[in-house]
């Protein structure tokens, strides 16, 4: 009975001309043409049902908690070192970016009464993992071959969202263990100038982009299924495509939850997708004055919210226009 109804299903679906969809998707399908970077290791491991006793499970849980507590209690190494040691910012230095997660959209109003749709991006638990100086850094894919000769920029590995070490492979954990950190869900490499390098374990917060209305780029992952009728269960087999959005404006920053409000709804990815944010290189929208360099130190006495001048915060009284 099940077979016959399945057959019926298949025959009806054939009549709906599924082939057309497949062809269309296939014509766009391009297999990924990259070699993973040298620091890339497979992340997810096959989870077997480990026969742990209750006490062992509790012990593991305790160990995990302790490690987490140690990491969160760890102060930013920057706060210890003297600020004199860091060099001054100049318009050509590239500083580190952030990994943020898109958490949704909602409207904000300007002081003229105009409504903007804004996207909320949350900077979750970003820590610097490793710095690779320019001499050692050897990327596989380089757009401009000239770049390889004049190696001026180093790479800074930043991770976001600490995860449970038991879920991931040993090699992946090894990446982080060598620097004494718990494994992170997402890793990203940011090109930085050598004097913008940060020590390992520095937490990065949303106030890194503290200067409101300074725009930045967002590089996001957009996922779409390549062939709809394949048996796809895990997200790894989904196609990734990178979309770059340049010159995105920040309208508001919340320091408590590390959330950035960004103008527009075209931020790549769906809700819950990660995107990488850098300082913009667009000439008209670059930083003119020094941003927090190399990054903003997390202090306790920060105002809760930073607003752009054009945005009307909800705490202020109702907008009214004066007669000419």
């Amino acid at each position: 009975m099940a077979n016959s109804s399945l057959k019926l299903l298949c025959s009806s679906l054939n009549k709906l001309k599924i082939n057309y969809i497949m062809q269309r998707q296939n014509s766009r399908y391009q297999p990924p043409r990259y070699r993973p970077p040298h620091w890339f290791v497979p992340k997810e491991r096959v989870m077997t049902d480990e026969m742990l006793t209750q006490e062992n499970r509790q012990f593991l849980e305790e160990v995990r908690q302790d490690k987490m507590n140690v990491q969160t209690a760890l102060e930013s190494p920057l706060s210890n070192s003297e600020p004199v040691a860091t060099t001054q910012w100049d318009p050509f230095t590239r500083r580190v970016g952030l990994i943020a997660r898109k958490i949704g959209n909602y409207p904000l109003w300007s002081k003229d009464g105009k409504r903007f749709q804004t996207t909320l991006l949350q900077v979750v638990d970003n820590h610097v993992i490793k710095y690779i100086p320019p001499e050692e850094f050897n990327p596989m894919v380089v757009k401009k071959p000239v770049w390889k000769e004049k190696k001026r920029l180093g790479a800074l590995l930043v991770g976001s969202e600490t995860i449970d070490p038991t879920i991931v492979t040993k090699e992946y954990c090894g990446l982080f263990d060598s620097v004494g950190m718990l494994p992170k869900r997402h890793l990203c490499r940011f090109m930085v100038s050598p004097h913008a390098a940060l020590p390992t374990g520095t937490p990065l917060t949303a106030t890194h982009f503290r200067r409101i209305s300074r725009c930045n780029e967002a590089l996001g992952i957009q996922r779409y299924a390549c062939i709809p009728w394949c048996h796809q269960d895990s997200q790894e087999t989904w196609q990734h495509s990178w979309r770059v959005l340049r010159g995105v404006k920040i309208l508001r920053i919340n320091t408590k939850h590390n959330v950035l409000w960004v103008l527009g709804v075209g931020i790549p990815g769906e809700t819950g997708a990660m995107c990488y944010m850098f300082d913009t290189v667009l000439p008209l929208r670059k930083h003119k004055t020094a941003p927090p360099f190399p990054t903003h130190l997390p202090t306790d006495d920060l105002p809760l919210e930073y607003y752009d001048e054009s945005i009307h915060p909800f705490e202020e009284p109702t907008i009214s226009f004066e007669e000419d």
Binding site: G104, Y106, Q122, T271, F314, E315, E316
Partner: peptide, 23 residues
Amino acid sequence: PKWRNSLREKLERADMLKRRNQI
């Protein structure tokens, strides 16, 4: 469920209450 996120909803509700305090 595609659009639900607890932090964003909290922030939105906080903003709504701030506005309600004004008017």
